[in-house]
Amino acid sequence: MALLPSSLASATALGYVALVCYAISTGFYGAYLRKPRPIFGRAATGLAAAGATLNLVALYARSAVLHSVPYRDLVGSMALLGFFLAVISLLLEIRHRDRSLGPYLMPVVFLFLLVALRVPAAKSPPAPELKGVIFALHVTLNMLAYAALAVACALSALYLVAGHALKGGKSLTTGGAASRLPSLRYLERANRTSLGVGVLASTCGFLLGVSWAWRVWRPDHPSWAFDPKIISVALILAFYWAVLVRAHRGAAPSTTARLSVLGFGLVIVSYTAINLFVSRLHTFYR
């Protein structure tokens, strides 16, 4: 570990290198979508993998410098989320031998890391109660859930775009960028899988969070369960469970796709606006 950056500034610099990798990878994915030359595809995948590795190293280095978990603040959380997104994108690519998701997922990864690097870092160290296995698992599982739900959202958006292009009447074509999208059936299946992973991880993360809050918050805040963040997450979780069950029972894939996009919109609101401005207890990032 002697090779790891030893200061916060160098860990941040490493984060920027990862960001550049993601940006160039996005460019190559875009080029690959327009003209599927193997060299573009390999460059895109290689740079995405390099970006994810550097992202992880930067996170680890930051944790080592701060003697804290990476998600002690919004910076670390967003960077970790970006990392999970990149990993899920690469896993889907390897699993299905299909690069057509990269052009849509990699810009999201880029944006997450960009935001993480631009927002101010927390000045004070995390409260002592934020340490421990339960809290670590709660956050990690939620990050994984957010990443999986973001992928499900991207897959759903692609399903709707590809479906629209195929229903296009006079604008129907057999070529162009739309023809390079993954097949509808693949998008529908991958969407269900991502939703499943996201909902399960989120449920476990939520239950662990509740158990942690019961132990830590209850003594000082008897009405902790009514915190807007907890209520919003519970409602969003219920919504996602309903979507997932409907999808498995054979709901129209386009309806599932629309609900998945809507669900992720709610997740963003909960993760940002409610977390930052409404919640009274879930305020670790201020």
Binding site: A178, S179, S183, L184
Partner: peptide, 8 residues
């Protein structure tokens, strides 16, 4: 070609 865009 259309079949390929609907089913992998």
């Amino acid at each position: 070609s259309l079949t390929g865009r609907i089913f992998e």
